[in-house]
Simulated assay, not measured.
Amino acid sequence: MANHDIKGKTVLIAGGAKNLGGLVARDLAAQGAKAVVIHYNSASTKAAAEETAAAVKQAGAEALTLQADLTSAAAVEKLFTDAVAAVGRPDIAINTVGKVLKKPFTEITEAEYDEMAAVNSKTAFFFLREAGRHVNDNGKIVTLVTSLLGAFTPFYAAYAGTKAPVEHFTRAAAKEFGERGISVTAVGPGPMDTPFFYPAEGEDAVAYHKTAAALSKCSKTGLTDIEDVVPFIRHLVSDGWWITGQTILINGGYTTK
């Protein structure tokens, strides 16, 4: 049987500078990963990426930061080839990249749709393609989606709608990569207590989301805390390898399928 321990493994995290991606980087380093590649999107997140890299090194792992706008296939390909050249082929590849838009369907512009599709669908597609090319046999691939994929709700057509294709990308990749022992999963957190969440929501919506999950009263914020998501990702990329081709909603009972 293949070794599914995190110790000694090489990890690549797209969107690994801060929030959930940054905490996953720190956690996997603490679990004994050999090297963690931390991707960040732009100069505005460079400092956060360097801070995460410093924490990864303090935990005993090698750290590499790489900047890229991943909305082109060439950029995703370069991210993987640069990572492989620097630290070797990844055993674990995690994509946390995403963009949210909350807006009435009839007001969404073509430019807004194109941007949402590029970030949420196209990036995910080509990340999975390059992971299939570069991740070692018996590796693990995880993509972040959203618990809104289990919701019947207005105003998120462009956000949830451009995350939805990732479910089928995940199933197809799991089937195609499975013969190499690679498991592929999607993780859909509920609304998370991060700066990613609040700008899109009004005060009333924030109040609703903080009470909408079955376990809201047991959460420190009422929302999904990133600390509650990290252990599941850790499990999926190690002992949970047998879970593949599925979307796992981690949301305290916010939505279900």
Rank of each mutant, 00 (worst) to 15 (best):
N138F: 12
K163A: 06
P199C: 07
W242N: 13
E203G: 02
L12K: 04
R129L: 13
I38V: 14
F80T: 06
A63C: 08
P195R: 00
T255N: 11
D69K: 02
A53M: 00
T256A: 14
D5R: 12
N95M: 07
V119F: 02
A157W: 05
D69M: 01
K34T: 12
T153N: 10
P154A: 13
R129G: 02
K102Q: 14
E130N: 12
H4Y: 14
M192I: 10
A63S: 12
A205V: 13
A55S: 12
E203M: 08
A14W: 00
A2Q: 08
T96N: 09
H235N: 09
S121K: 10
I243D: 10
I250R: 06
E227Y: 03
A118G: 10
I250L: 15
V76S: 05
G240K: 08
A73H: 09
E227H: 11
L23Q: 14
Y208P: 04
V166C: 04
G181E: 10
L64F: 08
H39K: 00
L23N: 12
G8P: 05
L249M: 13
A59Y: 05
A160F: 05
I92H: 04
P165L: 09
L149K: 02
N138T: 12
G190K: 04
C218R: 14
G240Y: 04
R133W: 03
A205G: 11
A61E: 07
V119M: 02
F177H: 09
N3P: 04
A54T: 11
K210T: 13
G222V: 05
K102V: 15
Y113L: 15
A213M: 01
K257N: 14
D82P: 03
F155Q: 06
G188Y: 04
A157E: 05
A160Q: 03
C218L: 13
L79Q: 08
E110Q: 13
V184N: 01
K163Q: 12
I94Y: 00
N95R: 04
